[in-house]
Amino acid sequence: MLTNRRFVAVASFLVLLALVPLLARFVGGEAFWIKFATRVMIYAIAAVSLDLILGFGGMVSFGHAAFLGVGAYAVGILSAEGIANGFVQWPVAILASALIAAAIGAISLMTRGVYFIMITLAFSQMLYFLGVSLTAYGGDDGMRLANRSRFPGLIDLSGDVTFFYVVLAILIGALVAGHRLVNSRFGMVIQGCRSNERRMRAIGFPTFRYKLAAFVISGVMCGIAGALLANLTAFVSPSEMHWTRSGEIMVMVIMGGMGSLFGPVLGAAGLLVLEEILSSHTQHWQAILGPILVLLVLFAKRGLFGLIDGKSAEKPAGLTGHG
């Protein structure tokens, strides 16, 4: 549920975001800012997708970057094979991420807790190595795309500003769909599974199929983010699937506020801005980012979005989650 203050915060953030291309014209470095804001939004979509299963479903997937890679490679491979048509590329990206999410989910969800964390991590690493070994498609170095997806008769994505607004529209779509989803009957089931799966089964829910469906939905949303990412940079490489990327997406969710849909958007912006600032001061910025993460987890679990309300969310002590 959105409080009034939260609604105002979300609306003003999105309006501000929509004005980035205009504002950038005054600040200078227009191309940089537009691309940077687009990248923030794409990672925001990925983080929202992870939050659906992590924050709402309690499934600690440490392999979400895999779907980023699947979406990106679907676009990249088709493009390399001469199919630049987005009406083909994007559905293929969606289908591929759905299938792979279904396979990974079906195996990982047979287990729980720490096994689930390790298995999702292992499968994403498997896809990473698969990407590295695809020498025909750039292997370790990745490959350059000739151009962005073509949507003949609909829209021309080659301009950065156009692409920016398309990504913004998809982000808003993802937020709206996510909002409907978590408050729907399906969303209640997913949240019930996070809260107390044993009880869910006792009152009659076959929980596995609902969790799997949530995993697939989340994977598809992240796959779309991957397809967008390939389009943004016109470049695809295994590094998008590396496990540190999965870690980063997870950090975005936590930093912004897990279990709130808009939190991950703030988290994506927060982490990427932080990286940008730190890396402009020192090449060893990760030595600073690491301890920041540790402190964040230990002391500020409610995240950026939680700060907007000022008061702590009503939550009973000691009764949350079970790993």
Partner: peptide, 23 residues
């Protein structure tokens, strides 16, 4: 109320309903 509503929901058909506000 949400606790009990979930129990009601468990016995009113499948829950692959993604759009309408359950609350």
């Amino acid at each position: 109320l949400d606790n009990v509503a979930l129990a009601v929901q468990a016995h009113s058909g499948h829950s692959f309903r993604f759009w309408r506000d359950a609350r």
